[in-house]
Amino acid sequence: LGRTIQSVRQAVWDGRKLIRWLKSEGYREISVLGMSLGSWVAGLIAAHDSAVSKASLFLTAGSLADMVWTGRATRSIRESLEPVIELTELRRAWGPLILENYAHNLARTDLELHVVLAKRDKVVLPEISRGFMQRLKAAGARPNILELNCGHYSLGMPPYILLAGLSLKRFLSFR
């Protein structure tokens, strides 16, 4: 549990350090993109760094704990944790990694959000993602959501990846 927090914390720290360097090099618009576990990292960076103006989160949900507990691909992780920890305790232990805890940070007016979800995802269950979208909206965010009729891994295949890519291109286009 601790190593997961340490590694995600390091990834967020590295991302924020890269943003500071980009800003020092004169970049004005900073966007982050993450897919699956990377979407938690990108979301945490966006939530903690006001230099980020756009965040695109592919295959995300609010709670990493819930994703690990319910996802088919993470069943072995759950089986290793279940004898020693319950889901409520895992949520508390991984609280710093739960994007829902930063919904208000992600709803700030100078941050645009783009989210791509998979309706048939067996890794990040759609109901967990939908709950996160509701939490974001309740906090005042207006995420641009694309929900595709595919699974977690099939998002990487045509036509889904093309639809997701076009949506991302429109989102990142400068106005």
Rank of each mutant, 00 (worst) to 15 (best):
G140W: 11
S129L: 04
H114M: 09
L106Q: 07
D66L: 10
G151I: 07
T70P: 06
S80T: 08
S154G: 00
P83H: 00
K137N: 02
R142G: 07
L148T: 03
F132D: 01
P159H: 06
A73N: 13
G140L: 03
R135V: 12
H104R: 15
L87I: 10
I98Q: 14
C150S: 04
K119Q: 09
K119P: 01
I161H: 06
S76C: 02
G151Q: 04
C150Y: 04
D121S: 06
I128K: 15
M133Q: 01
S80P: 02
N101T: 08
V115M: 14
S63L: 10
L64E: 05
N149K: 12
E147D: 07
H152C: 07
L146K: 11
T109S: 09
L125H: 14
R75G: 01
M133G: 00
L125G: 08
N144M: 05
L90N: 10
L146I: 03
H104C: 03
A118Q: 14
P96L: 02
V116Q: 04
L87F: 08
L125D: 12
K137L: 00
A139K: 14
L136C: 11
R91L: 09
V115T: 00
R92D: 08
N101Y: 10
S76H: 08
V123C: 04
P143Y: 01
K122C: 02
E82Y: 12
L81H: 05
R130L: 03
Y160F: 15
L148G: 03
P83K: 00
L99E: 05
P143L: 01
L99G: 10
L87T: 01
G62P: 15
V124R: 13
G131C: 00
A103Y: 14
V84N: 02
L162D: 09
I98F: 09
V116Y: 09
R130P: 00
V124C: 10
D110E: 14
I98H: 15
P126L: 01
R92F: 04
D110G: 06
F58S: 01
G131S: 07
R75Y: 13
V68D: 01
R72I: 07
I77A: 12
M157I: 11
M133H: 07
E147P: 02
P143R: 00
A139D: 13
L99H: 12
G140C: 06
R72G: 04
A139Q: 13
L97N: 04
S129C: 05
L99M: 13
V124M: 12
L146W: 09
L106C: 07
R72N: 06
L163F: 07
L163I: 01
P158A: 05
Y153K: 04
K119Y: 06
L97M: 10
R142P: 03
L162V: 06
I145R: 13
I77K: 01
A93M: 12
L99Y: 13
L81V: 11
F132I: 03
G131E: 02
L59C: 04
N101H: 14
A141N: 06
H114W: 15
P159R: 03
H104P: 09
A107W: 11
P96Y: 04
A139F: 15
L87A: 03
L59V: 08
G71R: 08
R135P: 10
L162I: 04
A118T: 13
N144A: 05
R75K: 14
E127F: 15
